[in-house]
């Protein structure tokens, strides 16, 4: 049986107390939300903690609230099931529900939280392995070693951002509130991430992600597709999240396209987004944008499937997302996902 190492466990009742506990020794303290990421990481010993602070009892972090301006404030500790099941949210942002329901399996969604999914540690098949396995290859750069086994000649770590909610919420223009013992700030979600497998979050270790703000959909339409081997349990090997706003002439007023699972952060498809801007949202422009989206991704060999094929799949999956938003008939075999 895989077992956890021992640690001091704290269950603060409110945010201030949690922030204080975290501030005491942020480098050796870890926050736990749903536990679906941290506990396996500790069991495998590629993460360590002397203290673990559970946010379970911090009531203010739970729940979905619709605000007067039509936007939503989602507590970081809201379970993925609760996020997906929230009717007003699902009605406003069906693609977000879809993204959340594509995370792992339904049972896991009862445990995992939205905040946890946004802060999900970057993943790599050389890293998410047991202690003994990692000893046999030599610890990698993300741990204490010198080498990134994915790209041994490279100076950086290439672990991937495998969060499904992240690219979707980035496309939706979400922002997050970060609270620490010394204050708080609210930043765009896109600013939370950076393309570095180790320092993948700009959040300071003493900060707690407390809330996610999602603007109202208004005239925007979204879609989310995810590629993975199986319809459940698996992390993605590619996800595509898109949000498009059209004007009255079906011209694209704004286009947001993000890829998941192909880099260490939710990857903006800059050229594809620019190509759509101001154009008629039709098959021709969708096809062109899909081709350009592929340029944003350069997956490496650290997930299931071949990276070349994953790269190739960006195009049809982006096309599928844009066609879904445009209400065009699908030409692709949709994955048999649990959503």
């Amino acid at each position: 049986m895989m077992r956890l190492p021992s640690f001091r466990f704290h269950r603060p009742q409110n945010l201030a107390e949690a922030a204080r506990l975290l501030a005491a020794s942020p480098q050796t303290t870890r926050l736990v939300a749903g536990g679906t990421d941290l506990w396996p990481n500790l069991k495998r010993r590629h993460q360590q903690a002397e203290d673990v602070v559970s946010l379970a009892l911090v009531r203010e972090l739970h729940g979905v609230e619709r605000r007067a301006d039509g936007s939503f404030a989602i507590g970081a500790m809201t379970t993925l099931s609760a996020v997906a099941a929230d009717r007003p949210l699902a009605a406003e942002h069906p693609a977000l529900s879809r993204a959340v329901r594509s995370i792992s399996s339904p049972v896991l969604q009862n445990m995992g939280t939205l905040g946890g999914n946004l802060c999900l540690d970057t993943r790599c098949t050389y890293y998410n392995q047991n202690e003994e396995w990692r000893r046999s290859i030599g610890y990698c750069k993300k741990e204490v070693g010198e080498t990134c086994w994915v790209a041994p000649g490279s100076p950086r770590c290439w672990a991937i951002s495998a969060s499904d909610s992240a690219p979707m919420l980035c496309a939706l223009g979400a922002s997050v509130r970060l609270v620490s013992a010394s204050g708080e700030r609210t930043i765009p979600l896109t600013a939370l991430y950076q393309d570095d497998g180790i320092a993948y979050l700009t959040k300071r270790p003493d900060e707690i992600l407390t809330q996610v703000f999602v603007p109202a959909a208004a005239d925007r339409h979204s879609a989310f597709w995810k590629l993975r081997r199986r319809g459940s349990i698996d992390f993605g090997v590619l996800s595509v999240a898109g949000t498009i706003a059209l004007d009255a002439q079906r011209r694209v007023r704004s286009a947001q396209l993000f890829l998941g699972c192909v880099a260490s952060f939710p990857t903006p498809c800059t050229e594809a987004m620019e190509s759509l801007q101001g154009q008629i949202f039709d098959e021709e422009h969708i096809t062109r944008a899909a081709v350009l989206a592929r340029k944003a991704a350069s997956p490496l060999s650290n997930t299931d499937f071949l990276p070349q094929w994953r790269s190739k799949m960006v195009e049809p999956y982006t096309e599928a997302v844009l066609r879904e938003i445009a209400g065009l008939p699908q030409q692709r075999l949709a994955p048999a996902h649990a959503f």
Partner: peptide, 26 residues
Amino acid sequence: ELGECGTCTVLVDGKPVLSCLVLAVE
């Protein structure tokens, strides 16, 4: 014991969860 197979599923407050990823104290 890593949340990958579902074998250890139990109900907590009526909802299925993986008992390998819940601390008993919680």
